[in-house]
Computed example of a mutant assay.
Amino acid sequence: MPSTDNFATRRRLTYVAVGFVTPALVTLIAVVVQAMSISDLPDEIAVHWNASGDADRWGSPWTMVIGAIVVGLVAIGISAVNYRQVRDGTPGGTFRWVSTASAALATATAVIFAGTLAAQTDGDTESPVALIGISVIAAFAVGAVGWYVQPADPPANPGRPAEPMGLAPGGRAVWLHTQTASRGILIVTGLVFVFASVSVLVAWTNGGSTSALWAAIAIVAVTIGAASTIVAYHVRVDSSGLTVRSIAGLPRWHVAADDIEDVSVVNIRAIGDFGGYGVRFARGRLGIVLRSGSAVSITRTSGRPLVITLDDAPTAAALLVAVSVRARQQ
């Protein structure tokens, strides 16, 4: 296994090359190609095509130039959001995906925007279906190279095995806890909910169509459902094992005491280890991730491992070990 310092340095440099340099370079090439084409273009060009392949919207050639620049900056911005964590050495395979996606996004849009202008220098306004195919191939190629040059993260830290809680023979214990998300996640979730609610209110008060109103209501319903998976969970550890359910009641999980093979206390980085918050799947693990920090990792005799972030992870883990040992002895 490479040294930690060498790995961190290589990951940081390749992350910059793939997530920053590549999007900037392909965007620059696209802008240069566009600038060379503009002198041979009319004041207005086709900028949109309908399902039949006919141009149905026209605009200035500079629209395509600005579009390429904006998407290139967005792609770089996506990588920039995570750079601080990469620089600080935060583990997690998600960062490799982020930089690769940034490079692929910038490449695809650069090909489309530059190709659209170049193709119309001879007056051709046919639908750029073939160009879209080329952009996908180019994005896949650049993404594949970007993925390959970045080092894979070493195996996740297994954490420290939990010691069983001392229980008297025949004694019982129950651990109850409601785990809430971090303040930042709660604020963002609240803002999304407010935005969705305002959308319904606007659709209703402005006399919009019935379909528009139902679409807005569906957005609110989806928002509430999504929020229930990232806002808070009720957690119970008792003689039956572990039970976790969202504040809405669903989703819900139960790990039976006799299905627990191993329990560890680990430190989780939400973005680095699982790529975000809520119910996540990463590295063969199911994660219920409401924040970064201490978590209980459960290896089951059946099914994938389960990781849940908890404020008092050591206590929950100790009781889980105790009840699992007792269940196997019965």
Rank of each mutant, 00 (worst) to 15 (best):
T125N: 11
S102N: 04
S127P: 05
Y83V: 05
A119R: 00
T94G: 06
I76G: 10
V129S: 11
G72V: 14
W97G: 03
V65C: 12
G59M: 11
A119Q: 00
S60K: 06
A75P: 14
W97N: 03
N82P: 04
T121M: 12
I76K: 11
V81C: 08
G93K: 07
G92V: 05
A118P: 02
T63L: 15
V98G: 03
A119L: 00
V111H: 02
G115P: 01
P128K: 04
V86G: 00
D124T: 08
A110S: 13
E126L: 11
L117C: 00
M64H: 09
I132N: 09
E126N: 07
V81D: 11
V74N: 07
A108V: 13
M64L: 15
T63I: 14
I112Q: 08
A106H: 08
L73S: 13
G72N: 13
I78S: 10
V86S: 00
G115T: 02
G123H: 03
E126D: 09
A118Y: 04
G67R: 08
T121C: 07
Q85V: 07
V129P: 02
T90E: 09
Q120M: 05
F95C: 00
I69D: 10
G93C: 06
T109W: 11
T107R: 12
L105G: 01
T107E: 09
S99W: 03
W62A: 15
A101Q: 05
I69V: 15
G115W: 01
I69L: 15
A108W: 09
S60E: 14
I76Y: 13
G93A: 11
G77D: 13
I132Y: 12
A68H: 12
G93D: 06
V65K: 05
A108C: 13
G72L: 14
T121N: 06
W62D: 14
S99F: 02
W62L: 15
G115S: 03
A114M: 02
Q120G: 02
P128I: 06
I69S: 07
A106L: 12
T116P: 02
P128L: 11
D88A: 15
D122M: 03
P91H: 06
A108Y: 07
T125S: 10
G67F: 10
A110Y: 04
I78G: 12
L117Y: 00
A101C: 09
A68F: 15
V98Q: 02
I69R: 06
F95N: 00
A103Q: 03
F95L: 00
P61D: 12
G92T: 03
W97Q: 04
T116N: 05
A103V: 05
A101E: 02
A104D: 08
I69H: 06
A106W: 13
A114W: 02
Y83P: 03
A118D: 07
T90F: 12
G77I: 09
A106D: 10
T121A: 10
P61I: 14
I112L: 15
I132C: 14
G93L: 04
G67M: 13
I76L: 15
G77P: 09
V111I: 14
I78Q: 12
A110H: 04
G72F: 12
M64W: 06
D88R: 13
I132M: 14
A101F: 09
S60N: 13
T116S: 08
A104T: 01
A114K: 02
V70N: 08
T94D: 07
